[in-house]
Design a protein around this nucleic acid. Structure first.
Lengths: 227, 227
DNA sequence: TGTACATCAGTGAACGCGCGTTCACTGATGTAC
DNA sequence: TGTACATCAGTGAACGCGCGTTCACTGATGTAC
């Protein structure tokens, strides 16, 4: 990867294009983004963008990968900044997850919302990117599990079998219970954020911050991990 | 509301239009629906549809209201068909909720997924429609609460205040705790379904049915309502 | 330092397309007498 | 039962629009000698 002045300018323009695309998605929805609108935003002609991305689909894929990675970066940063034990780390990571989702609502919709008509995500790229953030949570929960091991944790039999296969297949040194806890926590957090993002939560609970924190505490209690 | 032969034919065509729209959304995404594609599907010319809906937006609104109502109908039917106590009723309703979402994935995306570019939902129509299904759950949980009352149930202070205001404002004879439990349950269920719908869950847990049931049981345990 | 050439960002015109909506119309069906 | 009229579903043409992508091009920047 050459790092000439040219290359850096190219990369800078690529970033500008993505920034314009994100801005547009914010105004008009993830499905409303278009090459022509982006070029208008940047004061370029539409064909100019083809020097930077092969097609609209390629651009969308880049946006998706960026989003997954930025989210995972935010989670890692929260984990590493937290001084406390794994339980505190878990809380911090989950709070960072929500914060990122709210501050980058469009990117979050892009990766976890409705598919864009006519666009097909290349799974070989998006799946590993998506797994990064998830792996961070699993890792922390695994650590917390080791610190306070005893918990019944009834995993449905069929689910446990699958979890074990996933663990083996990924070569991932983690217990089925930690993985199960992670998924269980994820669905809660994800539901809360999704509903909040679309404005369904605030009218009912008011203080969504506090509600979210209570969800996290309930999650920890259910896992048998408590402060 | 006249019920002449003419009126019935008109209504039948309206249903056909909505059915075609749903089919299209399934093929091309909620954001991809168009008057012209629907008319093609039905073997009509595009202007003909304007005899039935004033605009594309009006049609989308009708689809959204239909979806909210169909979901609420499914939940009501599950509640009324269940012979057991309120806890069993709650389980049945939640299972019906997921089943409906999976069987009508597009409608579910339409009401709980990304907004459609250029479309603005008229809140005065959609909010009451959305509330119907939610009220069913709240009602059942309120009943269950009365049957097994003692539970600490720490609701964050600010959230409790807001819940009380909502209850008063709606003139809804329900305890803050029942409402809080409903929202807490909802975010879990919603997260599970959303992730399942977009294919994020099945690869990890395999047997999503069993996973979902386990989530419901965890939810009941957390509420202090157990079989 | 100066010249010849290659690279490549960006332009402008054009393509073929699908879109929502309007308009004046046709022709069948239903209603009033 | 028959005629005159109103209603209204559906048509066909047209509008102005934005879209992704292609192509041949210009002109500035960077490289080799």
């Amino acid at each position: 990867m050459p790092d000439t002045r040219q290359e850096r300018l190219r990369e800078a323009t690529r970033q500008e294009i993505k920034a314009a695309a994100r801005k547009l998605m914010g105004e008009v929805g993830t499905a409303g983004v278009s090459i022509r609108a982006i070029s208008r935003e940047l004061g370029l002609t539409p064909p100019a963008l083809y020097h930077y991305y092969d097609s609209l689909d390629a651009l969308i894929t880049a946006l998706i990968l960026d989003a997954f990675n930025a989210l995972a970066d935010a989670m890692e940063a929260a984990r590493d900044a937290e001084q406390g034990d794994s339980i505190h780390k878990l809380m911090s990571v989950m709070i960072a997850y929500r914060r990122w989702a709210l501050e980058h609502a469009v990117d979050f919709q892009l990766i976890y919302g409705n598919p864009i008509p006519g666009y097909n995500a290349p799974a070989d790229l998006t799946v590993p990117a998506a797994a990064r953030g998830f792996a961070i949570v699993v890792g922390i929960i695994e650590q917390a599990r080791r610190a306070s091991p005893s918990v019944s944790g009834a995993i449905p039999r069929t689910v446990k079998t699958q979890l074990e296969q996933v663990i083996q297949h990924e070569g991932y040194p983690v217990s089925p219970l930690a993985l199960y806890n992670s998924v269980s926590g994820w669905v809660r957090i994800h539901g809360t954020i999704m509903l909040e993002l679309y404005g369904h939560l605030e009218p009912v609970v008011g203080d969504v911050d506090a509600f979210y924190r209570a969800q996290l505490e309930g999650m920890l209690r259910e896992m048998g991990l408590t402060d």
